[in-house]
Design a protein around this nucleic acid. Structure first.
Lengths: 120, 120
DNA sequence: TTGACATGAAACCAATAGGTGTTATATACT
DNA sequence: AGTATATAACACCTATTGGTTTCATGTCAA
């Protein structure tokens, strides 16, 4: 994994499926490294490295409790992702914000909202 | 880059800052590979590979127009990201559901809710 | 205090990522 | 037809990823 010199950001942190699964686990409850490892087909060391990367991205935080280190989800950093996503949201799927976008930015367009049968 | 054998998914595709920038560019308008390359300090080949990865993730689509290939944003695939994010949204931003989560799952923790001046 | 346990840290490894340059092919222009 | 253009297809290089194993350190429990 990395244990590299430069910090990982949120985008890199969630790029790996194992790390995404770890986040899901930690959403439910605080867990030690060994407890987390139990859910994956790889060594404790590998999991520890994943946790380090998630830590760098500030998606999890760890506290030492006796001889174990327990990790918990720190979801605030996902806000960066949400912000990034929101920029593109205007372009798809959400017809309401799409319309909002059109109205706000292209007032000169001739748009008619037509009431159809499906609106019954 | 890859040109690897296994497909890249959305999470991997957006992990690279260059690719995120490309998506932003294509949000505004359809562009050819050369036009995109003009915005970055790297070769056309590198950009083409990034576009290939974005294509695999179905975040962009390319059509041939004469001798050039023009790419456009295909934002629907970002929905997978949005779905993934929505799962975690309950844990942050909404202090009430966050508190609910803490109370339900970490009763053993020594949490004190302190009333401060700002609560006046 | 002696062991068992949980983690940390390091060295190592194969595969992939991100980039380069070169060559080939199809299209467009005159 | 002949030349310039836009991209595709390779081969290649280096750093990073995602994993391993081994060894050291600190803590709990008997």
């Amino acid at each position: 994994m990395s244990t590299s010199l430069q910090k990982h950001d949120v985008f890199q942190a969630i790029a790996d499926p194992t790390r995404r699964d770890i986040l899901r686990l930690l959403a439910d409850k605080e867990l030690s490294i060994l407890e987390i490892t139990g859910h994956f087909p790889m060594t404790r060391t590998a999991i520890a490295k994943h946790l380090h990367i998630l830590s760098e991205a500030e998606l999890v935080s760890g506290r030492k409790v006796g001889r174990e280190k327990r990790f918990r989800l720190q979801p605030e950093s996902l806000d960066e992702l949400k912000q990034w996503l929101s920029y593109f949201e205007q372009f798809w799927h959400n017809k309401l914000s799409m319309l909002k976008h059109i109205v706000e930015n292209e007032k000169e367009m001739d748009i008619k909202v037509i009431k159809t049968d499906s609106d019954k």
